[in-house]
């Protein structure tokens, strides 16, 4: 059991940060795993499925850390599954349904680059998190490479592929910055060294990076700083409610059972 010795306000902010990161990885892991078995080519099917498993593995590790912060007997599964849809704190970017391959790649591209900026903002203020993030960053590096390769390929393919990809980016652009919305209690997290820079700085860096990738491909995307940090991770869509209904269905069929 990891012992947490922070002021209550810092612990609360840490728990919120862990929950938002875990929920992000959990939900995108679900969207990506929907491609298992039906991706455009078999080779890509295997790749996307590996990415989905990485994300779920990260979610599991983050929920386990969160369980140690709460220390109230709930395990990673209880934290991941046993909540009402409103209690999930994933970013709005991940609230969209699976969509077509262009949307899947656009989402991965925007999420992977934004997530990398977030991961780069986390320090060693709480060593268990710092150590986990170092491991996660090693894997996420490959996700970014995968997303970039596809983004480049679709954008340069011209025709239908480019049109679909650009349309998907534009559809997701209003929600993409939500990944880097300022977390609650950010000042306490910065003070404790859990964060090394404000999320607004991560957002600016990410926006510049995305432009550096897309502009040479002839794509300009409006990415605006998320105005309301609280709204970035609440008020989920019907698509997410549907997803929640699916992923909790077996578990709810016999509450309290061991699976």
């Amino acid at each position: 059991m990891t012992v947490v010795r922070f002021a209550p306000s810092t612990s609360t902010a840490l728990a919120e940060l862990l929950l938002s990161m875990a929920d992000d990885e959990f939900v995108i892991g679900f969207s990506d795993s929907e491609w298992t078995g039906i991706a455009p080519i078999l080779e890509e099917d295997v790749a996307m499925s590996s990415i989905a498993q990485d994300e779920l593995g990260h979610a599991k590790a983050l929920y386990e850390l969160l369980a140690s912060v709460h220390n109230d007997g709930r395990d990673a599964d209880a934290l991941a599954y046993d909540r009402e849809p409103e209690a999930y704190r994933h970013a709005r970017l991940l609230d969209h349904r699976r969509g077509d391959w262009a949307l899947a790649i656009a989402r991965r591209f925007l999420y992977d680059t934004a997530d990398a900026a977030r991961l780069a903002s986390i320090g060693d203020g709480w060593p268990p998190l710092g150590e986990l993030i170092a491991k996660i960053r090693r894997e996420e590096r490959y996700h970014v490479m995968h997303a970039l390769a596809w983004a480049d390929r679709l954008a340069r393919a011209g025709g239908e592929a480019r049109e679909r990809f650009v349309a998907a980016l534009e559809a997701l652009a209003p929600d993409a910055p939500t990944v880097l919305a300022t977390p609650e209690g950010e000042a306490a997290l910065l003070e404790a060294g859990i964060l090394t820079r404000p999320m607004s700085a991560a957002f600016e860096g990410w926006r510049t990076e995305v432009a550096g990738i897309l502009v040479p491909l002839g794509i300009t995307l409006r990415l605006e700083a998320p105005a309301d940090a609280a709204a970035a991770r609440t008020g989920h869509s019907d698509d997410f409610r549907w997803l929640w209904g699916e992923f909790t269905s077996v578990r709810r069929s016999d509450p309290g059972a061991t699976w």
Binding site: D45, S49, A52, A59, K60, W259
Partner: peptide
């Protein structure tokens, strides 16, 4: 089996099932 990846009742089961179905795709390839 793919239909149940989404409904797997724990994180461990979901990981195992995704991995299993991925193996089958890999075998097909």
């Amino acid at each position: 089996e793919r239909e149940w990846i989404m409904r797997a009742p724990t994180l461990r089961r979901k990981l195992a099932l995704t991995s299993k179905v991925q193996d089958e795709v890999g075998h097909a390839q």
